[in-house]
Nucleic acid binder design. Structure first.
Length: 261
DNA sequence: ATCCAGGGGGATT
DNA sequence: AATCCCCATGGA
């Protein structure tokens, strides 16, 4: 498979638990801490694990070719050549996108970093320390989360942690996407947008199309003559899923990047 | 000071 | 189904 542009993928807004350490990247996910260089050579994890996390099996050349037929996507595709949608840990991804509600990437990153430092296991790779996401059983102190700056998301996280501990995620990976989505939406703090993010970034449902404020703006601007369509975000989502089919998730990443300027 | 940020939930119309 | 409001916090 062709090389993965590590930083493009890590910095695309789908994942928050990474940082640059000199020439390498430190990544904390799936209960591990490991390093990769710009050619995805790992320290502290197997090459197979890292290739899977980075979805090296995705045919990005083919995806880019197919989506390049869409004029709006050409520029971001060129700029993000080789971007992959990661295979994240579901619980970890849930925490990240519940935290993301009405927030922004710098703050989300800081919130999650504080959470992991305070409640997550501390690991070490070749002398480099770092923390991973706390287990659901460790996320139960709402007051602490509020002190860490999570605001109204604190309760959602604590309540969802209890549901997950109780087994709410069990078997979701085997469900059809629509049913998995319904089940995710039952979790506190998880609406359609967050559910779609988890489906896309953790459950390999590449046909998912999360609609956030930026996607909404760019879609309305480019496809709906600047007017909000009947049915709101649901209409935008169905429009995109219909137009991009099994690659809607990738299309969404390119639209998001385009709207990020 | 006011607005807005990868929203969700509940009530009202 | 559309709209309003509230939920905290921080940066512009």
């Amino acid at each position: 498979m062709n090389p993965v542009p590590v930083e493009v993928t890590l910095a695309s807004g789908q994942f928050f638990r990474w940082r640059r350490t000199g020439p390498r990247f430190a990544i904390a996910t799936h209960g591990r801490l490991f390093l990769v260089d710009d050619r995805l050579r790992p320290e502290g994890a197997t090459a197979d694990f890292v290739r899977r996390f980075f979805s090296s099996d995705h045919d990005s050349a083919g995806i880019e070719r197919r989506l390049s037929r869409e004029p709006v996507l050409r520029e971001p595709i060129r700029r993000l050549r080789g971007l992959r949608i990661l295979r994240q840990d579901p619980w970890e991804c849930l925490v990240a996108f519940i935290t993301s509600a009405a927030s922004n990437i710098p703050r989300i990153t800081r919130n999650l970093d504080d959470l992991c430092r305070r409640l997550g296991p501390e690991l070490r790779v070749n002398g480099t320390p770092g923390n991973t996401t706390p287990s659901p059983s460790a996320v139960k102190d709402e007051a602490l989360l509020r002190r860490l700056g999570f605001g109204f998301r604190a309760r959602y996280l604590v309540d969802t942690a209890r549901e997950v501990q109780r087994g709410m995620l069990r078997g979701i990976e085997k469900l059809p996407t629509a049913e998995a989505r319904d089940r995710l939406c039952r979790l506190p703090g998880v609406g359609e947008k967050v559910a779609d993010c988890v489906l896309l970034f953790a459950y390999e449902r590449l046909e998912s199309f999360p609609v956030d404020v930026r996607i909404r703006r760019v879609m309305i601007d480019r496809y709906f003559q600047g007017r909000r369509p009947r049915g709101g975000d649901r209409t935008l989502r169905r429009f995109a899923m219909d137009r991009f089919g099994p690659l809607a998730g990738y299309a969404q990443q390119y639209l998001y990047a385009r709207a990020r300027l």
